[in-house]
Amino acid sequence: TLFEALYDYEARTEDDLSFHKGEKFQILNSSEGDWWEARSLTTGETGYIPSIYLAPV
């Protein structure tokens, strides 16, 4: 399942991933609670993103 960003997000740590509204992600690991490891389909970068900023596509 792909997810789309509902809002912009600016990374706060080196493990976080910055993204823009409308960016799409492949989720790599969603077992860490509210922060999911994801790969951006726009940039190819991976990192942790807040799941509350996402909606399934």
Score class of each variant (00 low, 15 high):
Ser31Leu: 12
Phe19Ser: 02
Gly44Cys: 09
Thr1Pro: 11
Ala11His: 06
Val57Phe: 09
Ser40Trp: 01
Val57Ile: 11
Ser51Lys: 14
Asp34Ser: 10
Ala55Thr: 13
Phe19Glu: 00
Gly33Asn: 11
Leu41Tyr: 06
Tyr9Pro: 00
Tyr48Gly: 03
Tyr9Ile: 03
Asn29Lys: 08
Glu45Thr: 08
Leu28Gly: 02
Glu32Tyr: 12
Tyr53Val: 06
Asp34Cys: 14
Lys21Cys: 07
Thr1Trp: 14
Leu54Met: 10
Val57Thr: 08
Lys24Arg: 14
Glu37Trp: 15
Tyr7Asn: 08
Ala55Asn: 07
Gly47Asn: 03
Ile27Val: 10
Tyr48Phe: 13
Thr43Cys: 03
Tyr7Lys: 09
Asp15Met: 15
His20Pro: 05
Glu32Ala: 13
Ala11Arg: 09
Glu45Lys: 15
Ala11Lys: 09
Glu45His: 13
Arg12Phe: 08
Leu17Gly: 01
Glu4Val: 15
Phe25Asn: 00
Trp36Ala: 02
Lys21Leu: 05
Lys21Arg: 11
Ser18Met: 03
Pro56Phe: 07
Glu23His: 07
Pro50His: 14
Asp15Pro: 05
Pro56His: 06
Glu37Pro: 04
Glu37Ser: 08
Ser51Leu: 06
Gly22Trp: 05
Ala55Tyr: 09
Pro50Asn: 14
Glu23Arg: 01
Tyr48Asp: 02
Gly47Arg: 04
Ala38Gly: 08
Glu14Gly: 14
Ala5Ser: 06
Glu4Trp: 11
Phe25Pro: 00
Thr43Phe: 02
Ala38Ser: 04
Glu45Leu: 15
Lys21Ile: 08
Leu6Val: 08
Ala5Gln: 00
Gln26Arg: 09
Ser51His: 10
Asp34Trp: 12
Thr46Leu: 07
Ala55Cys: 09
Gly22Leu: 03
Gly47Thr: 03
Ser31Phe: 09
Leu41Asp: 03
Tyr9Gln: 02
Arg12Met: 11
Thr42Ala: 11
Glu4Leu: 10
Ala5Asp: 00
Ser18Gly: 08
Ser51Val: 10
Phe3Thr: 02
Ile52Pro: 07
Lys21Val: 09
Pro50Phe: 13
Tyr7Ser: 09
Ser31Lys: 11
Thr46Glu: 08
Gly47Glu: 01
Lys21Pro: 03
Arg12Gly: 08
Gly47His: 06
Ile52Tyr: 13
Thr43Met: 02
Leu2Glu: 06
Thr13Phe: 15
Leu28Ala: 04
Asp8Ser: 10
His20Cys: 10
Tyr48Cys: 09
Ser30Gln: 12
Ile27Asn: 01
Trp36Met: 04
Thr42Gln: 09
Asp8Leu: 03
Arg12Val: 12
Lys21Met: 08
Asp15His: 15
Trp35Met: 13
Pro56Asn: 05
Tyr9Thr: 01
Leu54Asp: 00
Ser40Val: 04
Glu45Asp: 09
Trp35Asn: 07
Ile27Ser: 01
Leu28Met: 08
Ala38Leu: 03
Tyr53Phe: 10
Arg12Tyr: 08
Tyr9Cys: 04
Glu10Gln: 13
Phe25Cys: 01
Ser18Thr: 09
Thr43Arg: 04
Tyr9Trp: 08
Ile49Val: 15
Glu4Thr: 09
Val57Glu: 06
Asn29Pro: 04
Ile49Leu: 08
Ile27Met: 03
Tyr53His: 05
Leu54Gln: 01
His20Tyr: 13
Glu4Asp: 02
Phe25Trp: 02
Thr43Glu: 01
Leu6Gln: 07
Glu32Leu: 14
Tyr7Thr: 09
Leu17Cys: 03
Arg12Cys: 13
